[in-house]
């Protein structure tokens, strides 16, 4: 199992093998300890900053204490208005119109509120949340790539850049 887990950490397992290994990780025990150990080794080899010991357990305990918020984000006005917009679009049945309407916020005066100009920050914002790449990250990259001046020096090579499988996994 140890070698399987090592290969899993390195992303070298076939899908069915990976599933098997992940199943073993599902329960506390030797497999999970091995998993943690290999990651620790990886992190120290790559000079990644280490988390204090018991970090995962403390976070899990804190999460368990958090109250669950059940109220959905309210957006009733927007929904009603976009239905109106859709019916208009449907009656015109013009794709061009759908595209252009998509870039007008549909909620009239309400739209003015969030427009407050942001202060120009020159320093990297320390408080910025680091998030996993969006679901459609590869689509954005592909859409962007066509306009990169690097194509003129490098041809199509830069198109190979996509979200790595590790980043994809981190999103889940």
């Amino acid at each position: 199992m140890k070698s399987k887990i090592s290969a899993l950490v390195d992303g070298e397992l076939e899908r069915h093998e990976a599933e098997e290994a992940l199943e073993a990780l599902g329960t506390e025990g030797l497999a999970r300890d091995t998993w943690r150990a290999y990651h620790l080794i990886n992190d120290s080899m790559r000079d990644t900053r280490l988390l204090s010991s018991g970090f995962a357990a403390r976070i899990a305990a804190k999460l368990a204490d958090e109250p669950t918020v059940l109220a959905p984000r309210a957006r009733p006005i927007l929904q009603r208005r976009s239905w109106q917009a859709l019916s208009v679009a449907a009656s015109l049945a013009a794709v061009a119109f759908v595209v252009s309407v998509a870039f007008y916020p549909q909620d009239g005066p309400v739209a003015v509120a969030p427009v407050a100009p942001q202060a120009l920050n020159t320093a990297p914002q320390a408080e910025t949340a680091q998030v996993a790449p969006p679901e459609a990250a590869d689509d954005y990259l592909l859409a962007h790539q066509g306009y990169s001046p690097r194509n003129s020096l490098q041809g199509m090579a830069p198109y190979v850049r996509t979200v790595s499988s590790e980043a994809r996994a981190g999103r889940r």
């Binding site: 927007l78 549909q106 427009v115």
Partner: peptide
């Protein structure tokens, strides 16, 4: 925002030479 199934997480993600920054402006 309307019509997006996925919840959007505002913030920054880094992919090598790429950075992706997401925020919400006027719906």
């Amino acid at each position: 925002v309307a019509g997006r199934a996925e919840t959007v997480r505002p913030g920054l993600s880094s992919l090598g030479a790429f950075h992706i920054y997401t925020r919400e402006v006027a719906n």
